[in-house]
Write a protein that binds this DNA or RNA. Structure first.
Lengths: 340, 340
DNA sequence: GTGAAAGCGCTAACAC
DNA sequence: GTGTTAGCGCTTTCAC
């Protein structure tokens, strides 16, 4: 029972046919070789009995194809990326490709090293998700002739499929303006933007969407309405505290850029009497299921993993991986009140 | 620049040495072969210039080792499993093994198929996490002579590393009894258990821990204190509603089995005036970061991914993968109040 | 100190 | 309809 790995030669011997025939039967090319159904059946039966399993290092070497498709992500332990992994696997399997996911911890060196390792296993495609140096990765992949694309964060040397941050921010801002019933766009009667990092791809798009919408509605926007205080929750907490103090209370609307700053905001809100919270409309760019359970209503922008992945595989299917176009995918607006 | 994959033969030719020498230099066995440092350096330089990358299908075939270690998990998109993946990768890389994680969606057929595929790539080790049929997987692995172990859910044909549900439930129950200041163990003045599935490994252990602790403290336990209503949040919501009605209010303490039932409970609690919540001590077996932001304090049991994985790799390191011992790892108790 | 040669398990072109 | 053969890129034993 133990350790009886068998090869096509074992089967050839037992069936009285040749290794070539066995190979053809076992990999499904036997009709093309016009092998007798009888022979095929016979061989298959023996293979089953021996629990034969092809050695893909050998077949891959011979065919110079591995059947592998890989994706690198920054980390596994994250709602967005783990949901990308899940969707990636499904799409890959639909195409008879074997998915491999590896995380690179936002470490440029590990990123490069991981990609090289993956290439050494002769992966056929690579999805580069949220990479710190997408163009470095592109260079390596190109040298090895491996099709690849960027996800979530764009690069300039391969096609990219990313969230439409501009559009998402517009929608969220519009909703908030209307829900908060903003009239004057001044003092507490205005919408405020909190969190994110200046000159970072995602934040940039979101800021543009926010500003664009506010300016559209009121003709102008004040610099005091923006506090791009970083992604750290402590910094966000300090920022909302300061804003609260300055305004003498919460504003009528708050656009929080990402769930991490949201944590900081929530920590501050916990210190306020709950009726104050009802005077502010809260929005968060990024979704987390926990947010449905907060003590106040919250609008969230949820990235569309399904559509991102679908677009990416569409590019694979079309063999369309050579340009450097950026495809933007619309996220969706979710309200915590819908889920409760 | 494009597609210039090179082989050791290219390098051999350019360097005027033989493929064997190049191979030895490039895979680090060259001191053993007593190759001149000069030659080695020369060869290395050429390899770098060509951006040579070993073909692991070829080297793996020859050595009949792949350098791969795989783990199957039910799903990626889950706090516990994604954190297992993260830790798995780290430990694997520390050992110069290349980690592969694949999800099997709690589908027995996909589980078996995925394992077979992984084996066809000649993986050297397999971690079987939360499998529906761990023993099926063991059979297949044994036939292929591949070392493997079970994680999270135990099997009978390989070593298993699982959470100590009994211990965790004991600790959580003890904390809750004391925090709730239970006196009579009757009516509202008692601790109640909610959620989980009868005859399931994890629930069994937790029920035993709960009962054991209550009986220890009060000499007995009533069957009405247990409602093993499943993992569905709607069922849990119905269960807590019924309990509330029966008792004429919340009990002094509630042990909720898993985060999904917790969601249901929270939905119900939202309908209550907040001061009622202060009269009950809440505990949840399983941890989720969102729970720190609920409007009431919550004790949680957090599985120790780090220790689980460490134990698993310890078994690998010791080559100790042949028994079927079950190793239980203590989880830890976390309070939402510690994090705020 | 290094080259030559065999072979890992499989596939595919070419026989017949 | 099926056997034979060469070879994918690499490692390793045996020469010398």
């Amino acid at each position: 029972m133990t350790n009886s790995k068998s090869t096509i030669y074992d089967i050839a011997e037992l069936s009285g046919s040749s290794a070539g025939t066995v190979s053809a039967v076992l990999n499904g090319t036997w009709k093309k070789r016009r092998i007798k159904a009888d022979t095929a059946e016979q061989i298959q039966k023996i293979a089953d009995k021996l629990k034969y399993n092809v050695n893909r290092q050998a077949s891959g070497l011979r065919k110079s194809r591995s059947g592998l498709i890989a994706m690198i992500i920054p980390i596994h332990d994250n709602r967005f990326f783990s949901s990308m992994s899940q969707t990636f696997e499904r799409y890959a399997r639909e195409r008879n490709l074997h998915p491999i996911v590896a995380s690179t911890l936002r470490d440029p060196a590990l990123e490069v090293q991981t990609v090289k390792t993956l290439l050494s296993y002769q992966i056929e495609y690579l999805f580069v998700t949220g990479a710190t140096k997408p163009d470095e990765v592109s260079k390596i992949c190109k040298h090895h002739g491996v099709s690849h694309l960027n996800l979530d964060l764009p690069g300039t040397k391969a096609p990219s499929v990313v969230s439409d941050n501009f559009w998402g921010a517009q929608k969220l801002t519009e909703e908030l303006l209307s829900k908060a019933n903003i009239r004057k766009n001044k003092g507490r009667d205005a919408l405020y933007f909190l969190g994110g990092v200046e000159n970072e791809y995602a934040t940039n798009g979101r800021i543009r969407g926010f500003k664009d919408t506010v300016v559209n509605a009121f003709g102008s926007i004040q610099s005091t309405q923006m506090d791009v205080c970083g992604y750290d929750s402590e910094l966000a907490k300090a920022a909302i505290e300061k804003l609260y103090e300055k305004l003498g209370g919460l504003p009528k609307g708050l656009f929080i850029n990402s769930t991490q700053p949201l944590e900081g905001v929530v920590r501050f809100l916990k210190t306020l009497p709950s009726k104050e919270l009802t005077q502010c409309a809260f929005g968060c760019y990024d979704w987390d299921p926990f947010a449905s359970f907060l003590s106040f209503p919250l609008l969230m922008v949820k990235q569309n993993t399904e559509a991102l992945m679908q677009k990416a595989f569409e590019l694979i299917d079309k063999g369309d991986m050579n340009g450097n176009k950026i495809f933007e995918i619309q996220p969706s607006l979710v309200s915590s009140e819908d889920q409760a």
